[in-house]
């Protein structure tokens, strides 16, 4: 027997302790929600195209009939990348910095992740965008992280330079999300995604960032309405 056969034999040897059985009902529930999101996305894409056509027609007719007006202020969010589409409502975090209100929203499609480590990487699928709205209502996307919707799992984004230090999503029926620190607990702000109410967006006040840094490891917990930890 040569090395290659040894490798193949080793690869085929099952792990000694086995695996937990797959929960088919849970898989089907998760997959069903993914399918719902895809349908919602298709519907929003159709609506978006229709709206874009209507706005174009309206703008052309206005340009023909009226003199140039003041710059139009965006009232809708726009994605971080032209290849992606904004999905559902913009979440106002209630936080504000020198660039304006801090916002979160989902995008879908093909987008580029903006960060210092992997600036050229492109992703397809859902992304969570951190953005700012300035005093004139203009929304500027700052950074997009690819979003993962595994049930019972935290998807965490940390960004210490763009207004919102720690934020992310949790898929599951969480009423409250807390970070456990040596010096106690910090509760996150939360809301649910308008497209899928089982997805919870969470964010922490920026003044918690030094506490997180002091703790070294950030431990997040999702709690139900009675304050009990949700089992994964």
């Amino acid at each position: 027997m040569n090395d290659l056969e040894s490798l193949r034999g080793a690869l085929r040897t099952p792990p000694p302790d086995g695996f937990a059985p797959v929960d088919v009902q849970r898989v089907m529930a998760l997959g069903g929600r993914m399918r719902t999101r895809r349908r919602a996305l298709r519907a929003s894409a159709v609506l978006g195209v229709t709206a874009a056509v209507l706005i174009s027609v309206s703008t052309i007719s206005q340009q023909q009939s009226t003199p140039p007006a003041a710059p139009v202020l965006l009232s809708q969010s726009h994605p971080a990348d032209p290849g992606s589409t904004t999905v559902s409502d913009v979440v106002e975090t209630g936080l504000r910095d020198d660039r304006g209100q801090v916002l979160l929203y989902f995008v879908s499609g093909d987008y580029r992740v903006k960060n210092s480590i992997n600036a050229a990487q492109r992703y397809s699928g859902y992304g969570l965008t951190l953005a700012h709205r300035d005093g004139q209502g203009r929304i500027t996307a700052d950074t997009t992280s690819n979003a993962s919707f595994t049930e019972g799992v935290f998807d965490l984004c940390q960004n210490e330079e763009r207004g919102l230090a720690t934020y992310g999503i949790y898929t599951g029926p969480a009423a409250r999300i807390v970070a456990k620190l040596d010096e106690g607990e910090v509760t996150a702000h939360t809301t649910t995604w308008s497209t899928d109410r089982t997805v919870v967006l969470y964010w922490f006040d920026p003044d918690t960032a030094p506490k997180f840094a002091r703790s070294g490891t950030l431990t997040l917990s999702a709690l139900d309405a009675e304050g009990r930890p949700l089992a994964k």
Binding site: F19, V22, R26, M28, G32, M34, R38, T150
Partner: peptide, 30 residues
Amino acid sequence: LLHTAYLLSGDRHQAEDDVQTALARTYAAW
């Protein structure tokens, strides 16, 4: 699939999570 996921990640719990996610995506496109 679980064995494949384990070989890819080297982590039993991660493998179980990955297989659940992959199967859910399969169900969505079933």
